[in-house]
C-alpha cells in the first residue's frame, strides 16, 4: 500500500533541529560558565584596583559615562525641564540617588 505523503515529517524535524539548537545554546551558557567566571573575576579585580565606579558603555557625556557619580543637575544642562541633549540619555534614566543634591528634610525620606 502506498503511504500518503506526510507533511508533518519535515516540519517535526525542523522543530527538532530548532529545539536542539536552543538546548545547545543553554548548554553553551553552562559550558562557558567557568571561563566566564574567571574572566569576570579578573575584571572585578581590575575594577577594585583602579577604583572604577561605572561602565564605559556610553562615553559621550559626564552623566552617561558616570551615572552614579554625576551631578544631579547635569542631565538637564540647559533648563530643569529641558529634553536630554545626548541620544544615550533617552536609553539611560536619570539617576535617582539619595544624594546631597536633593532638598530632603526628613532622614527617612532619604530612601536608603
Amino acid at each position: 500500500m502506498n503511504m500518503p505523503r506526510r507533511r508533518s515529517g519535515p516540519v517535526f524535524v525542523g522543530f527538532g533541529v530548532l529545539g536542539a539548537a536552543l538546548l545547545f545554546e543553554l548548554y553553551f551558557v553552562a559550558f562557558a560558565g567557568p571561563a566566564t567566571r574567571a574572566r569576570l573575576d579578573r575584571e572585578a579585580g581590575l575594577v577594585a584596583d583602579l577604583g572604577l565606579t561605572d561602565i564605559a558603555l556610553f562615553t559621550e557625556a559626564r552623566y552617561t559615562r558616570h551615572p552614579s557619580l554625576a551631578d544631579l543637575n547635569t542631565p538637564f544642562q540647559d533648563h530643569p525641564m529641558a529634553f536630554d541633549h545626548f541620544p544615550s540619555g533617552s536609553i539611560m534614566p536619570v539617576p535617582r540617588l539619595p544624594g546631597e543634591g536633593w532638598l530632603i528634610f526628613q532622614p527617612k525620606e532619604r530612601g536608603q
Binding site: 543553554l26 551558557v29 562557558a32 566566564t36 564605559a56 558603555l57 559621550e60 541620544p87 544615550s88 536609553i91
Partner: peptide, 19 residues
C-alpha cells in the same frame, strides 16, 4: 548603533553568556 549615540568610543566587548 543605538547604544553608541553620539559617542566616538564604543567598547568592543563580548558579553558573558548569561540567561
Amino acid at each position: 548603533p543605538v547604544l553608541r549615540g553620539w559617542a566616538v568610543i564604543y567598547p568592543d566587548f563580548a558579553l558573558a553568556p548569561h540567561i
